[in-house]
């Protein structure tokens, strides 16, 4: 892990404009990803984590708008890129694996022709050269190159996912964004895909922005991670440190949202099932935390992150256990 950040997001703010209301999906979010670092972004659905990914890829369209902040990639201002510049930058510098990536393959084109497209478009290779490069890529993700002539429906879910990963790595991007890459895959396939990404990352040295709601999976893969809630970051720290001693009560709730595989069977409450609104939901605590009455003096607003220990940030909450950092 190097200390020079490859991606720097500062005070990013994204708003969705509705007919009669505006929703702030990402509110003043700042983080950076170092070279060769795997950075995890966790949160439940609707917290704005995918919006962050789409903002970095510059994929946001109306009614979403980036209304503030900066995204710098290797020192360049991403938000200033226009037209052809932006087109060349995408996939070459930052590639993305989308949620339900298996369905992002074109069903009426063979895997090969979809991969060849990448090379002929971005690198101007001949079809023959592009095919041999594509074969190499498939071998990299342990798929037999004869599969170049297969259609997506002829591959299993895991293989399709691998093919999508191969396509994302085709132009050797410096940053790979993975938005819930393994939802809809069963656990065995999921673990194999994760091990493969981890191997490729060590081998090729790219950085990863990894988005998921599965905290366990994230801690296994990531070096550093952040937890997002209602468009705000609530905690950011080294992954293992955060897992061992979470400071923010919401981080703990998110970790306890999955039942454990060991220990006695205890009743969990999970996160609440109320309809959430990013514009300050009334009623129950949006963190799904029940505070004792003497601590329930919070406004519900999430404050800015504060560095409580080197590299350890938390948005303080009445129940934040700062003394936990000593451990």
């Amino acid at each position: 892990m190097s200390t020079t950040p490859i991606l720097e997001v500062t005070n990013l703010r994204v708003e969705y404009h509705g007919a009669n209301r505006q929703v702030v999906a990402v509110n003043d979010v700042s983080f950076s990803i170092g070279e060769g670092e795997i950075f995890g972004l966790a949160g439940e659905s609707g917290c704005g984590k995918s919006t962050v990914a789409n903002a970095i890829m510059r994929l946001l369209k109306d009614p979403a708008e980036i209304t503030g902040g900066q995204i710098r990639f290797k020192g360049r201002d991403l938000l200033a890129l226009r037209g052809e510049e932006l087109r060349r930058f995408r996939w070459k510098e930052i590639a993305m694996i989308f949620q339900s990536a298996m369905n992002s393959l074109n069903p009426v084109m063979t895997i090969g022709s979809q991969m060849v497209d990448i090379f002929t478009t971005h690198e101007g290779l001949s079809v023959k050269q592009a095919r041999s490069r594509s074969a190499e890529l498939l071998r990299l993700v342990s798929i037999d190159p004869v599969r170049l002539d297969s259609y997506p429906h002829q591959l299993s879910g895991g293989m399709r996912q691998r093919a999508v990963i191969a396509m994302a790595l085709a132009l050797e991007p410096s940053l790979l964004i993975m938005d819930e890459p393994t939802t809809a895959l069963d656990v065995v396939v999921q673990q194999e895909i994760m091990a493969q990404i981890s191997d490729l990352q060590r081998q090729l040295g790219f950085s990863v922005l990894f988005i998921t709601h599965d905290m366990s999976l994230m801690v296994e893969l990531s070096h550093r991670m952040a937890v997002m809630h209602s468009g705000r970051l609530v905690e950011m720290a080294d992954a293992e440190l955060m897992f061992d001693s979470p400071l923010h009560p919401y981080t703990l709730s998110l970790m306890n949202a999955f039942p454990p595989l060991t220990g006695p069977r205890v009743r969990l409450t999970g996160l609440s099932d109320s309809v959430r609104a990013a514009d300050g939901s009334a009623g129950s605590c949006s963190f799904h935390v029940s505070c004792p009455p003497d601590l329930a003096n919070c406004s519900g607003n999430i404050p800015d992150l504060r560095e409580v220990a080197p590299g350890r940030f938390v948005a303080e909450h009445p129940r934040t256990s700062i003394e936990g950092t000593a451990a």
Binding site: D214, F258, T269, G270, S272
Partner: peptide
């Protein structure tokens, strides 16, 4: 379902 509602 999302993780937040599974336990429910």
């Amino acid at each position: 379902l999302d993780v937040s509602v599974r336990i429910g």
